[in-house]
Structure formats: structure tokens, C-alpha cells
Amino acid sequence: MDLQIISRDGEPEYAVLPWAQYQALLRAAGVAPSPEPEAATHIQAESEQSSSAADLPSLSQLGALREAKGLAVAQLARTVGISPSYLDLIESGAREPDAAIRRSLAWELGVAGWRGEA
């Protein structure tokens, strides 16, 4: 099963899985599967339109975004699952995080993503 666990403050908060697997779980539980919700389609289309590269922050703004949220380096690093020293290297531009870390940082800081993200 392709399952992603999203944590907040070190505790699991959400479980994300592909729609087909979710539907299979519903069938196995004896619950009638539902069609794809229109709201999810609408939200996805909206986010694709509103998050053009020009609207996204640059990864070089990571430190400022973290400070604006009132988060210490150690706190954000722990939540994302990396060391504070590695977060310092990312903020200074000495290291480029992989896509999973970029997504986690964006999630924790409440941004749609990062400009130039692959």
C-alpha cells in the first residue's frame, strides 16, 4: 500500500493514500465506495491555477518564512524529520533538499511549494 504519514509536532496527523486504494479499503470495510468528490477536483484545479512559479517563494526565503511563523530551527527541523544542522545548511544555501523535504517544509510553513521545484 502506498501510504504517506504526515506528522505535526512529532505525532501522526494524517494518512494519505491513492484514491483507488482508499476505495478498496471502503469496499473491504463494507462501505459503498463514493465517486471522486467534486470539491477535491475543484480544489486541485484552483491550486494548479493559483500556484504559478511566480507566486511561489524561493527556497532562499526559507529562513524568513520560518522566523515569520515563530519557529526555531530545531523545532522546524524536528517536525520535518531532519537535523537542525541540515536545516541550517538548507537555509544558508549550502545544501539543496530533496523533493520530500521540500514538500514537508512547504507544508509546515503553509506555502504551496517552492519556485523551481522539480
Rank of each mutant, 00 (worst) to 15 (best):
1 M>G: 14
1 M>C: 09
1 M>T: 10
4 Q>I: 14
4 Q>L: 15
5 I>M: 07
6 I>W: 00
8 R>I: 00
8 R>W: 01
9 D>W: 00
10 G>T: 00
10 G>K: 00
10 G>E: 00
12 P>S: 03
12 P>T: 00
12 P>F: 00
13 E>W: 00
14 Y>I: 08
14 Y>V: 07
15 A>W: 05
16 V>K: 09
16 V>S: 08
16 V>M: 10
16 V>W: 05
17 L>Y: 03
18 P>V: 02
19 W>Q: 05
21 Q>C: 09
23 Q>L: 11
23 Q>W: 05
27 R>E: 15
27 R>D: 10
27 R>C: 09
27 R>V: 15
28 A>N: 11
31 V>L: 12
32 A>D: 11
32 A>H: 06
33 P>C: 03
34 S>M: 13
35 P>C: 06
36 E>M: 11
37 P>S: 04
40 A>M: 13
40 A>W: 14
40 A>Y: 12
42 H>I: 14
43 I>S: 11
43 I>D: 14
45 A>K: 08
45 A>C: 06
46 E>V: 12
46 E>C: 12
49 Q>I: 12
49 Q>P: 06
51 S>H: 14
51 S>Q: 14
51 S>I: 08
52 S>E: 12
54 A>T: 12
54 A>G: 08
54 A>K: 12
55 D>A: 15
56 L>S: 04
56 L>K: 10
58 S>L: 08
58 S>A: 12
58 S>Q: 08
58 S>C: 06
61 Q>K: 14
62 L>T: 03
62 L>C: 01
63 G>Q: 14
63 G>D: 12
64 A>D: 15
64 A>K: 13
65 L>G: 02
65 L>M: 06
65 L>E: 02
66 R>H: 00
66 R>G: 02
68 A>G: 08
68 A>L: 06
68 A>F: 06
69 K>I: 05
70 G>D: 01
70 G>H: 01
71 L>A: 00
73 V>M: 11
74 A>D: 07
76 L>M: 02
76 L>N: 02
76 L>F: 02
78 R>D: 13
79 T>C: 09
79 T>Q: 15
79 T>S: 15
82 I>R: 06
82 I>F: 06
82 I>L: 05
84 P>H: 04
85 S>G: 09
86 Y>L: 09
86 Y>Q: 10
88 D>H: 14
89 L>R: 15
89 L>I: 11
89 L>Y: 13
91 E>L: 03
91 E>R: 04
92 S>K: 08
93 G>Q: 05
93 G>I: 08
95 R>T: 11
95 R>Y: 10
95 R>Q: 11
96 E>H: 13
96 E>Q: 15
96 E>N: 13
96 E>V: 14
97 P>A: 01
101 I>Q: 07
105 L>P: 04
105 L>W: 03
105 L>E: 01
105 L>R: 05
106 A>R: 01
106 A>N: 01
107 W>A: 14
107 W>Y: 15
109 L>W: 03
110 G>K: 00
111 V>M: 04
112 A>K: 06
112 A>N: 07
112 A>F: 03
113 G>K: 05
114 W>Q: 03
114 W>Y: 05
115 R>Y: 04
115 R>N: 03
116 G>S: 08
117 E>G: 04
118 A>I: 12
118 A>V: 14
